[in-house]
């Protein structure tokens, strides 16, 4: 007896036929599908003109020595070391220390809700190694020497110039390179100083495990682009 004539099959079809099947929610499915596709694509690449990214970072720099003013910076006996000065000193020492990084992009787009990308990484400038995880689970970059690699189901060498490996998909062109975090961290930190506000958060730990923490913010405004046709907003 085939399945079609099998009493259980007949009974299941009778049971199923008792259900009223509503019309297929095609528009709703399309709308949700397009949104899901956009969210997924935004997690992998940069999107869109007219986006302003506020970058907030927290940097912990190891090292037992207290921060010293950078050479050439005059400090009076009554002066308080500013965060910038501290960071300048830290930048010089960072080339000799490993450090951790937590990087948060807040992307404000006109007419849309803020989006946030969080990256977490650690870098060893002495051995020129580093990693950066994020913004979504499973996404990771590795920096080895002058090369950058990204995980896409398998390790792939980042195309283009190694310094194109941006910290965050919304990194402004020519300003910050994640690869510099392991190859030239001092340069990276000095760029941060020039871009925006640096705040010395404080020191935690003691002795060789002491960590100095900095936070920084800057507004990253993308270059305006020509308008191009898009799918209608949903």
């Amino acid at each position: 007896m085939s399945m079609e004539q099998d009493p259980l099959s007949v009974a299941l079809r009778d049971l199923a036929d008792r259900q009223t099947v509503p019309a297929a929610p095609v528009e709703q499915v399309l709308r949700r599908g397009r949104r899901a596709k956009r969210v997924r694509a935004a997690g992998l690449t940069a999107v869109g003109a007219a986006a302003a990214a506020v970058v907030a970072g927290a940097l912990g720099i190891g090292g037992a020595a207290p921060p010293e003013p950078a050479p050439g910076v005059a400090v009076s006996s009554e002066a308080v070391l500013t965060p910038t000065m501290r960071l300048a000193a830290a930048a010089d020492r960072t080339a000799r220390n490993t450090f951790r990084l937590k990087w948060t992009y807040v992307i404000s787009q006109r007419g849309g809700a803020d989006a946030k990308e969080i990256y977490v990484g650690a870098f060893d400038p002495v051995h020129r190694r580093g990693y950066l995880n994020g913004p979504v689970s499973g996404m990771t970059q590795r920096f080895i020497g002058d090369d950058a690699y990204v995980w896409r189901g398998k390790w792939q060498k980042r195309p283009g110039r190694p310094t194109d490996a941006a910290v965050g998909t919304y990194g402004a062109p020519g300003q910050l390179s994640a690869l510099e975090l392991s190859t030239a961290p001092g340069t990276f930190l000095k760029k941060l100083q020039a871009l925006g506000k640096v705040t010395y958060v404080g020191r935690s730990g003691s002795g060789g495990a002491a960590v100095e923490r900095y936070s920084f913010t800057y507004a990253n405004r993308a270059r305006p682009r020509r308008a191009r046709s898009r799918s209608p907003p949903t």
């Binding site: 397009r34 596709k37 956009r38 694509a41 992998l44 690449t45 940069a46 999107v47 869109g48 283009g160 110039r161 310094t163 194109d164 941006a166 998909t169 919304y170 990194g171 402004a172 062109p173 020519g174 300003q175 910050l176 390179s177 993308a222 046709s229 898009r230 799918s231």
Partner: peptide
């Protein structure tokens, strides 16, 4: 530093 972009337009 190049910023890559994908087109998310629906075909």
């Amino acid at each position: 530093m190049a910023v890559s972009e994908t087109t998310t337009r629906a075909s």
